[in-house]
Lab assay of single mutants.
Amino acid sequence: AEEIWQQSVIGDYLARFKNDRVKALKAMEMTWNNMEKKEKLMWIKKAAED
């Protein structure tokens, strides 16, 4: 689920960090860890469908 979420937001994060992939990935990891369980559930369901 986290991978699907990352694939959907990586472009936004890379743009925000001027294509600094290391910073973008760290920010994504922090965002994922801070997400509410119900927000993650949507992505977990999406992962299950694929």
Rank of each mutant, 00 (worst) to 15 (best):
W43T: 01
K45V: 09
A48N: 10
F17Y: 13
F17D: 01
A48I: 13
G11N: 13
A47E: 05
A24F: 02
D12I: 12
N33E: 11
R16V: 08
K46D: 04
W5H: 00
R21S: 07
A48W: 12
W43Y: 04
I44C: 09
L25Y: 13
N34S: 10
N19Y: 11
D50S: 14
K18M: 14
E3D: 09
Q7M: 12
R16L: 13
K38W: 15
T31D: 14
L41V: 06
E39I: 06
E2T: 05
N19S: 07
E2K: 13
T31M: 08
V22L: 11
K18Q: 14
A47W: 14
E36C: 06
E39W: 04
Y13G: 00
I10E: 04
E29F: 07
S8D: 06
K26Q: 12
V22T: 10
E3W: 15
E36Y: 03
K40T: 02
N33M: 11
A1K: 02
V9M: 06
A15T: 12
E36I: 04
R21L: 12
K37E: 15
D20Q: 04
K23L: 14
I10Q: 06
L25P: 00
I10D: 01
K26N: 08
F17C: 05
V22R: 09
E29V: 08
E39R: 03
Q7C: 12
N33K: 13
V9Q: 04
L14Q: 02
M42L: 12
K40W: 03
W5Q: 00
M35C: 02
I4A: 10
G11V: 11
E29A: 12
L25I: 11
A1V: 05
W32L: 00
K46E: 06
L14W: 02
E36G: 13
I4F: 15
N19H: 08
S8G: 05
M42K: 14
K23A: 14
A15D: 08
L14G: 01
L41K: 05
K23S: 11
D50G: 14
K37N: 12
D12F: 11
M30H: 13
D12T: 08
E39T: 05
M35T: 01
I10S: 04
F17P: 00
T31H: 11
M28E: 00
S8Q: 08
Q6K: 10
K38D: 15
E3H: 12
I10T: 03
W32K: 00
E36Q: 05
S8H: 14
N34R: 09
N34L: 07
L41N: 07
R16P: 01
I44Q: 12
K46Y: 07
Y13Q: 01
K37A: 15
W5K: 00
A47D: 04
K18W: 09
N33D: 09
I44S: 06
K26M: 12
I10A: 04
A47C: 05
T31W: 05
M42Y: 15
F17H: 07
L25V: 08
V22S: 11
W32P: 00
K23G: 09
N33V: 07
I44K: 04
D50I: 15
M28S: 01
V9S: 03
K40Q: 06
L14R: 02
S8C: 12
N34V: 06
Q6P: 01
G11P: 05
E29G: 07
W43S: 02
G11D: 13
R16G: 03
E29R: 13
E36A: 11
V22D: 12
K18N: 15
N34M: 10
K26S: 09
R21W: 13
